[in-house]
Amino acid sequence: MYYSYSPYPYDDNTVNAFLERSETGKDLTLGLFRNDKMIAYFFLWYYTDPVPLLGIGILDEYQGKGFGKKLIQFLIDAARRSSRDGIDLTMLPDNHRAYALYESLGFRHYAGCE
């Protein structure tokens, strides 16, 4: 598998749009809840394609607590179980914290993807 992040906003409109996309059956969109409040969403767009697109959104107060790593690992495992060829993502070039996270999970930077 190969893996290649721009942050997604966390607001009601964005979350609702992702959930609507998921209802088509082409995407895998999930939410993480704490005390009946959604604190994060994560997805694989084009889940039925050979290489879906990964994205996550986490409320600011829950960032840096390990949720991102667990959510991404969950999606990697789901893609493997579904025999996907890899997972793609985009990220801002100066987001060093995200880059380190993705690299620790097996994602690799490919030249020309910027």
Results as ranks from 00 to 15, higher is better:
residue 27 D to Q: 11
residue 94 D to M: 01
residue 104 S to Q: 10
residue 35 N to S: 14
residue 105 L to G: 03
residue 26 K to S: 02
residue 57 G to R: 00
residue 103 E to N: 12
residue 65 K to P: 04
residue 70 K to S: 11
residue 1 M to C: 07
residue 10 Y to V: 00
residue 19 L to Q: 09
residue 114 E to Q: 12
residue 40 A to H: 13
residue 23 E to Y: 10
residue 106 G to K: 06
residue 29 T to D: 04
residue 74 F to A: 05
residue 34 R to N: 14
residue 95 N to Y: 08
residue 68 G to A: 13
residue 83 S to F: 15
residue 39 I to V: 15
residue 86 G to L: 03
residue 19 L to N: 10
residue 20 E to F: 05
residue 5 Y to I: 09
residue 80 R to E: 11
residue 78 A to T: 01
residue 47 Y to G: 02
residue 48 T to Q: 13
residue 97 R to C: 02
residue 27 D to G: 08
residue 105 L to P: 09
residue 47 Y to K: 07
residue 27 D to I: 10
residue 46 Y to R: 04
residue 68 G to K: 02
residue 7 P to H: 15
residue 101 L to N: 08
residue 61 E to D: 12
residue 100 A to Y: 06
residue 67 F to A: 10
residue 15 V to E: 02
residue 22 S to W: 14
residue 92 L to M: 13
residue 114 E to F: 10
residue 8 Y to I: 08
residue 58 I to W: 12
residue 38 M to P: 03
residue 72 I to G: 03
residue 45 W to D: 08
residue 99 Y to Q: 06
residue 38 M to W: 03
residue 81 R to A: 14
residue 10 Y to N: 05
residue 81 R to T: 07
residue 51 V to E: 12
residue 71 L to N: 03
residue 7 P to I: 06
residue 61 E to A: 13
residue 77 D to C: 02
residue 88 D to N: 02
